[in-house]
Amino acid sequence: MEWLERFFPYILAGLSVGGQYALIAIGYTMVYGILRLINFAHGDIFTVAGFIMVYMSATMPLYISIPLTIILTVLLGFTVERVAYKPLREAPRMSIMISAIGMSYLLQNLMWYVTGGLAKQYPVIPFISDSIVVWVTTTKIVTLVTPVLTIVLVILLQQLIHHTKLGMAMRAVSRDFETAKLMGIQINSVISATFIIGSFLAAVGSLLYFSNYPTVTPTVGAMPGLKAFVAAVFGGIGSIPGAVIGALIIGVSENLIKALGYSTFSDAFTFALLIFILLAKPTGLFGEKIIDKV
């Protein structure tokens, strides 16, 4: 019981961070499922969402600035796809991945320019920033809200994917791009829809994530972005439940490592886990098997 009391705060924090990673990871995994592209810019979209919130809430009340942040982030995700990925539809996969890296570079530099490289105070969102006592520890309400909200959003997303026409189109495109096209599916709108959903979840994730921290800086999103990506790979890229489980595992184990006093290695552990899973089961926990055809 004693060890549970000691580790409980960390597990709680881990579940919360894991939920936030999960919201980002879904964006990665959906895009990968459809375009076979690691969207390196996704982590930066997440950070941009943080900054939009900072600037919006400076002039507007929260009930306007929160929806506006989400809308603008979605718009950004949509634009990034149209500008940087759509023209490369027929190009080799490496080119489009490089374009994603270039886009990430551009977004980071743009944030640097707009903010002057300074850390910006993140607004306090009432209610979710309030403190609450849970069993043996004090935490913010956001810690409890995140896992619940994540699960609700994922269930909604699963409904969308399995029970709507758009979802069916998405599944078809991720199964076989060419055939889906021949069957009359509007590839471009399906891809745009994927980016819109991914950016929406990243925006929500960013609201929750940055509520835990006092400030936002332009490079702060790179690490959660990468970790969310690792979570997506860990769970089997292309699989949404996989991404969520992967993210929760990573969130919890990273916090447990901090609890044991090895904070330096919390990032390294994530990658070690990734490499281990790639070697043991290269397509992740729930990934589909890839067969190499000549």
Partner: peptide, 18 residues
């Protein structure tokens, strides 16, 4: 090096971080 394309990219990136 047994991994392919994207997986190789992310694994090498991970090693650099480690």
């Amino acid at each position: 090096l047994r991994l392919k394309s994207d997986y190789l990219a992310i694994a090498t990136l991970g090693f650099a971080e480690i």
